[in-house]
Design a protein around this nucleic acid. Structure first.
Length: 402
RNA sequence: GGGCAGGUGGUAGAGCGGUCAAUUACACGACGCUGUAGACGUCGCGCCUUACGGCUACGGGGGUUCGAAUCCCUCCCUGCCCA
């Protein structure tokens, strides 16, 4: 029995309305999942997050393994108890850190690379990194067995394999966990991306194997988990290459995971990502929930939902908030601008969030300029409410549609 | 009245003959942020110019020098000490 129940499918697009069932309650999809890497949504209490309406949140395996340590979290009764969040939790496998502490550091790029270093306008062959403008020394070393990380905190060495990632994630005790993968860089060429993808596939099999032997998870207070254990998502890779993406979709989609994550480099421009989604969606089993890893700019959401994505996680709304950018209809609003100091209006008059109901642009500008922590807090509450509201509208629209 | 120490860009504070439109920090401004090494980063910040470059500048004035924020004289101002 699967964890996903489709309530309604759009006739015109691949969009689905559904619920993901976990031991800590359901997630109404399509859904945005706020990211709380270190078992905390930066700046918000869980009560604030509940008031915003988030069904679930996502934490990070690598970060929690390093600090405070997954064994500690386990001793404290698991992530839910540790962070006082009784709704569903996801954990990312650490696969993204293979990228963010590796190629991303080295090349100075992100998942969606619209800026290429130096003269390079295209791909990067393996070993060619030194010709690009190297930003910093990478902290990872990848082998068939797994990935050696040098801790970004103290430089100490750590080795994470697919088996280790699963074990850490079991200790953490999230409801929905991810297979360990390598998130490749948009600068990687076809050959490297292909070899990496094949390895990610082998790692996927190893994750499933390690996962099989795990004991059923004890149920939380929410509705019973239909599968009586954590749910494991596999991750599709393949960069921007059509044959690789399709191959990965078929392999990961049929491996016996509970859900499918779509990860990796999403190309140079936005349209690349939509192309990738269109390639892989027809190849994925309908009954499995699909998660688009790390994507969540408002402008990306609707198209991805129509392409058939069920859930999204993204650091952008929370990070942007901390950096002084409020999400508004059609773009962003810079909270730090001096001219805001004389503006009595809220960020958005039509917004129903706590921040907009109670505070002016003037006050927010003051808080940010003064370096008061309340600024990022109020901005985070606004941005997450904005995302939640965006998805609520998408769900309502799907529910009403024919 | 006498002695000493100082006056540098929005602020603090380097520089003490050429490499100085002037280190650095803060402030200010613009931009960026997509599975969080991020309440962060990049850039700008005398004037004109897209740029090359030009112009005006280190309290005021006057000198020395090929060349002065840097040396000399003088005036003004500030702080401390003695009368």
């Amino acid at each position: 029995m699967g964890i996903f129940q489709i309530i309604k499918k759009s006739n015109r697009t691949r969009a689905r309305l559904g619920i993901i069932k976990t031991a800590h309650g359901v997630i109404h999809t399509p859904a945005f999942i706020p990211v709380g890497t270190q078992a905390a949504i930066k700046g918000l209490t869980v009560d604030q997050l509940k008031e915003i309406g988030s069904d679930s949140l996502l934490c990070n395996t690598y970060h929690l393994y390093l600090r405070p340590g997954d064994e500690i979290v386990k001793k404290m009764g698991g992530l839910h108890k540790f962070m006082n969040w009784d709704r569903p939790i996801w954990t990312d496998s650490g696969g993204f850190q293979v990228f963010s502490l590796g190629a991303a550091l080295e090349h100075g790029v992100g998942k969606v690379a619209n800026i290429f270093p130096g003269e390079k306008t295209g791909v990067l062959r393996e070993g060619e990194a030194e010709h690009a403008i190297p930003k910093k020394e990478k902290l990872t070393k990848i082998s068939e067995e797994g990935v050696e990380f040098r801790s970004h905190i103290d430089g100490s060495s750590h080795f994470i394999s697919p088996e280790k990632s699963i074990q850490i994630q079991e200790n953490l005790g999230a409801d929905l966990i991810f297979a360990f993968d390598e998130c490749t860089s948009p600068l990687h060429d076809y050959e490297y991306t292909k070899r990496s993808m094949k390895r990610t596939h082998r790692w996927a099999v190893r994750c499933l194997e390690a996962f099989k032997h795990k004991k059923p998870a004890h149920s939380g207070r929410g509705s019973p988990n239909p599968i009586g254990r954590q749910a494991l998502y596999g991750v599709i890779q393949g960069g921007v290459f059509e044959d690789l993406r399709k191959e990965s979709a078929k392999v990961i989609g049929n491996l016996g995971f509970d859900g499918v994550g779509i990860g990796g480099a999403m190309g140079k421009i936005k349209s690349d990502m939509y192309k990738i989604l269109d390639w892989i969606m027809p190849l994925l089993p309908e009954e499995k929930p699909r998660h688009l890893l790390g994507i969540g700019s408002p402008e990306d959401i609707e198209k991805a939902v129509m392409a058939g994505v069920d859930t999204f996680d993204c650091v952008a709304p929370t990070r942007l908030a901390r950096n002084g950018a409020a999400l508004v209809e059609g773009g962003r609003f810079n909270l730090k601008l001096a001219k805001n100091l004389e503006d009595k209006n809220p960020i958005d008059k039509k917004c129903g969030c706590y921040t907009c109901k109670n505070y002016s642009r003037s006050y927010l500008a003051h808080l940010f300029r003064a370096g008061e922590m309340l600024g990022p807090i109020l901005a985070t509450a606004h941005n997450l409410w904005f995302m939640e509201n965006l998805f609520r509208k998408i769900r309502e629209k799907l529910a009403k549609s024919k």
